[in-house]
Design a protein around this nucleic acid. Structure first.
Ligand SMILES: [Mn+2]
Ligand SMILES: [Mn+2]
Ligand SMILES: [Zn+2]
Ligand SMILES: [Zn+2]
Lengths: 142, 142
DNA sequence: AATCTTTTTGCAACAAAGTTGCATGTGATT
DNA sequence: AATCACATGCAACTTTGTTGCAAAAAGATT
């Protein structure tokens, strides 16, 4: 099963024309293993002293640009990242799903099946993208 | 008309049991004059060298706690603040309106009349607060 | 108006978060 | 194996946010 994961990681990187390196493999692995979104800090902690802080920044930046991950705005203005669905491509994301943040455990979860509803805006406003974040209690913490 | 504003500022501060000081008056004035949300940096620039950076941080913190302003999460994870409606009080905000961010001019606007719709979540999730941010083009930039 | 008390402010020092340039190391291609 | 482009680590730096404390200003009391 770990071999499967490794193959999957390789495939994702190749598909996005990225060379397969240690930090990229490790960070992508973290995302695949995690059920919630990750902050830059989380990744730094989990990779330990293995990689430079700068490398983590640049890797996340690269993944963002390639559409491998997307960032999530949170009410406390911290930066979170989560895997995109397969069909996100460079530049054009379509992760228009709701994000849920648990007030107790702090975990942020992509509700991939809950689509962000469109709302009617006042005249003059031309909407492009809708984002929705819900805070509350998750399954484990309620 | 400027006298009116000054009176209004005084009233807001008094109503919230805050002493009326130079920085609080000035920063509150900036919010009342602005039609969009303000970032910490905006405020620093507009107050010039008048007040210390730390004072701006603390003033915003105080206004937040008192329910005079609310913060807005943005897709690029910067921190924005905007005035609350009159009936927000300490701790309990009810600014459950949609926020609009223009991709051209960058202005962030409170759509006070557009209520955030509630969505049905998967079983197990207990929602508490819904936040919604829409990006696109504003009236002036479209 | 003068005095006392409480709160706010500015300063300095610090901590955390993020950026940039450049030399070196590694992965991909032939 | 040799080459070349790209990714990484390091150092130095900027930007952003925090904390403790003394001085200053605001509010209350006489
Ligand atoms: Mn997501
Ligand atoms: Mn608002
Ligand atoms: Zn939880
Ligand atoms: Zn605009």
């Amino acid at each position: 099963m770990f071999l499967m994961m490794e193959a999957q990681i390789d495939e994702i990187l190749r598909k996005n024309q990225l060379s397969v390196t240690g930090s990229r493999k490790r960070i992508l692995e973290l995302f695949l293993m995690s059920n919630g979104a990750l902050a830059h800090g989380d990744i730094e902690k989990k990779t330990g002293e293995k990689f430079d802080r700068v490398t983590v920044y640049r890797t996340l930046q690269t993944f963002l640009e390639k559409g491998i991950i997307h960032s999530i705005p949170t009410p406390d203005n911290s930066v979170l990242y989560a895997l995109c669905k397969d069909d996100c491509s460079e530049g054009h994301h379509h992760d228009n799903h709701v994000h849920f943040i648990c007030s107790i455990c702090g975990k942020t979860i992509c509700l991939a099946d809950v689509t962000v509803p469109e709302v009617k805006l006042p005249v003059g406003f031309l909407p492009h993208e809708y984002q929705m974040v819900v805070t509350g209690l998750c399954k484990e913490c309620r």
